[in-house]
Computed example of a mutant assay.
Amino acid sequence: MSRITGTIDIDFETGEDITEEQFIHFKNKLNNIMNGWEMEIDDVAEQCGFEADDMHPIILDSIDCDY
Score class of each variant (00 low, 15 high):
37 W>E: 04
6 G>N: 06
5 T>G: 02
33 I>N: 05
47 Q>R: 15
13 E>S: 14
27 K>F: 06
61 D>E: 07
30 L>N: 00
43 D>E: 14
32 N>S: 14
12 F>I: 05
18 I>D: 06
31 N>G: 01
8 I>C: 06
17 D>V: 05
66 D>S: 06
28 N>K: 11
52 A>R: 08
35 N>V: 13
33 I>H: 11
32 N>P: 00
14 T>E: 10
36 G>H: 08
29 K>S: 10
11 D>L: 09
59 I>Y: 08
45 A>H: 00
12 F>S: 08
4 I>E: 09
62 S>V: 01
67 Y>L: 10
58 I>Q: 01
21 E>F: 12
9 D>F: 00
52 A>C: 13
25 H>M: 09
57 P>L: 02
50 F>R: 11
54 D>C: 08
19 T>V: 10
11 D>I: 07
43 D>V: 13
50 F>P: 01
28 N>R: 14
25 H>Y: 13
37 W>R: 08
50 F>G: 09
48 C>T: 14
50 F>E: 07
11 D>A: 09
60 L>N: 02
34 M>E: 04
18 I>E: 06
26 F>P: 00
47 Q>N: 14
53 D>M: 07
55 M>P: 05
39 M>G: 03
56 H>Q: 11
67 Y>A: 05
23 F>Y: 08
13 E>R: 07
23 F>W: 12
3 R>K: 12
60 L>S: 04
54 D>H: 07
28 N>Q: 06
16 E>Q: 13
27 K>S: 02
47 Q>F: 06
51 E>V: 09
53 D>T: 03
37 W>Y: 05
57 P>W: 05
4 I>R: 02
10 I>F: 07
36 G>E: 08
25 H>N: 14
52 A>E: 02
10 I>K: 05
4 I>C: 03
23 F>V: 00
38 E>S: 08
60 L>D: 06
28 N>M: 04
7 T>W: 12
46 E>I: 03
45 A>F: 02
29 K>R: 13
12 F>R: 06
43 D>F: 10
57 P>T: 04
9 D>A: 04
9 D>I: 09
13 E>L: 06
66 D>W: 08
